[in-house]
Amino acid sequence: MITEYLKETPEKLKLIIENSRDLFAEVKKQDINRIIITGSGTSYHSGAQVQQKMREISGISVEAYYPFLITKELLASDANHTLFVGISQGGSSYSTYNVMKMAKDLGCKVASMAGAENALIDEPSDYILTVLCGEEKAGAKTKGFYSTKLNLLLLALSIGQENGTLNQDEYDEIIETLKNTADHFLNVYYSAETWVNNNADRLKHAKEIRIVGTKELYGDTLESALKLLETMRVPVTGYEFEEFIHGIYNAVNEDSTIIVLNPSNDPRIEKLINVLSEWTNNIYVIGTKVEGLEEEKNFVIESGDNYLYNSFVYPIAIQLICAVVPKLKGIDPSRPKDPQFHMKLESKKLNR
């Protein structure tokens, strides 16, 4: 099921781009100088990954927070000019819904980004900015992650063009980059599929996994860790490179599996891999090839420093690990361990 959703992703991305002018036509005209994004899990990771690019292209402040970090004090500054964006792919998260209501009560403009229409989080919203990714029944979401990142970027693009941060040529260039990225998505998918199958027998024995990524891919790093944890059902953590070398490395041993997201030619990353290789044989690299690492453990992505491209293709290989490897362990990666968990915890609205 996960693989089918991944293969649907490029067409969903193109659909979202095609509909973006109409979707953001009203909200982009509002007097906004601050955007706050909130959501849990994958929804938060979407905002965390694109917030810096959104700042660049919109020319305004953009911040991503988990719902539990949202307070009245955080929202008190210039609430009337703040766009508060609540994200929930299923649209039924009570934690997101509750802080959206609080933001509205404090005077913020409130928008929802759900992956379905008539969602719970649409109720308190002034602007319903539905993510046109379609239904995703797998517990571990994939196409929704890419689609939400794109929806957020297109929101920022619309605002940036409206307020003069971007001229028409700059706007068109970014749109073209996003379209080209969608066109290349399946090429990376099929290459990643081969790489995962070549390493699957080793990966199924992973006892604990660390994902290490550069700051440009921090949201993708967190999302990769979450997806592996949900599907592999072993301890998984994700760290930005600088944070990892400030102490996390102490926990690496012969049982550790390390996956490095390596979009740059930073020589320190290769040095880190060389040091860690003295402690574990289970190191894999996605991105720039690392010399000295076994050939089959390098999944090379030729992308240069194209941030937008990298953010939409680097997670693919890890999501395919999530689709393929758990089955070798007797786990259905599309089915949560307890499908009734959120109902028992009353953390999501029951869809009838």
Rank of each mutant, 00 (worst) to 15 (best):
D201H: 01
T221H: 07
I209P: 03
K204S: 00
K215L: 04
L222C: 10
E230I: 15
R202W: 02
V234T: 15
K215D: 06
I211A: 02
L226D: 11
H205Q: 06
T237V: 13
F244N: 08
V234K: 12
R233C: 09
G238C: 10
E243C: 04
L222Y: 12
D220H: 03
V234I: 15
E208W: 11
K215T: 05
E242T: 07
L226H: 12
T231Y: 08
L217G: 05
G213F: 02
I248E: 12
K215Y: 03
K227T: 14
K207F: 03
A206R: 01
E230D: 14
L228S: 09
Y249N: 09
H246S: 13
R210Q: 02
E242P: 08
N253L: 02
G238K: 11
K227H: 12
L203Q: 02
I209R: 04
I209C: 05
I211D: 01
G213M: 01
V236C: 15
K227V: 15
A225W: 10
T221R: 05
N253W: 08
V236H: 08
I245H: 07
N253Y: 11
G238R: 09
M232Y: 07
R210K: 09
I211L: 15
S224W: 06
E240N: 13
L203M: 08
Y239W: 13
V252A: 07
L229Q: 15
I211N: 03
Y218M: 04
E223G: 12
